[in-house]
Amino acid sequence: MNKVLSIVVPAYNEETTITTFFDTVEKVVKLPAGYSIEYWFIDDGSKDKTADVVRRLNAQYPDRVHYVLFSRNFGKEAALYAGLQSAQGDYVAVMDADLQDPPEMLPEMLNGIENDGYDVVGTIRTTREGEPPIRSFFAELFYKLINRISSTPMPSGVRDYRLMTRQVVDAILSLAERNRFSKGLFSWVGFNTKYLEYKNIDRTAGSSSWSFGKLFAYSIEGIVSFSVVPLAIVSVLGIAIALLSAIAIAFIILRKVLYGGSVDGWASLVSVILFMSGIQLTSLGIVGEYISKIYLEIKNRPIYIAKESK
Rank of each mutant, 00 (worst) to 15 (best):
Q85S: 15
S136I: 08
F212E: 15
R125L: 01
I172C: 03
Q167W: 06
N73I: 15
G265C: 08
M95F: 03
A59D: 12
L244Y: 04
Q100A: 01
T50N: 04
Y143A: 01
G112L: 04
P302H: 07
K214I: 15
L80F: 11
G260M: 09
T16Y: 07
V270M: 11
V25R: 12
E308S: 14
R55S: 00
V272M: 15
Q167V: 15
L215F: 10
A246M: 08
A205R: 08
S211K: 11
W188Y: 06
E221A: 11
V9P: 01
D98V: 02
L284A: 11
L57V: 03
A242W: 14
S187V: 00
Y118H: 07
D264F: 15
I113M: 06
I305G: 01
P102C: 06
G190S: 00
I201H: 01
D90P: 04
I42T: 11
V94S: 05
A139G: 10
E14Y: 08
Y198N: 10
L31V: 09
T123L: 02
T20M: 10
L57D: 00
G157K: 00
S262K: 10
P230C: 08
L196H: 12
S156N: 06
D44T: 08
V92P: 02
F70P: 05
N192D: 09
V94A: 06
N2Q: 09
L106C: 05
K293F: 14
T193N: 06
P107Q: 12
V158G: 00
V168S: 02
Y61A: 02
M154Y: 02
A242H: 11
L244T: 05
G190N: 06
D23T: 13
F275S: 09
A97H: 07
E177P: 02
V4A: 12
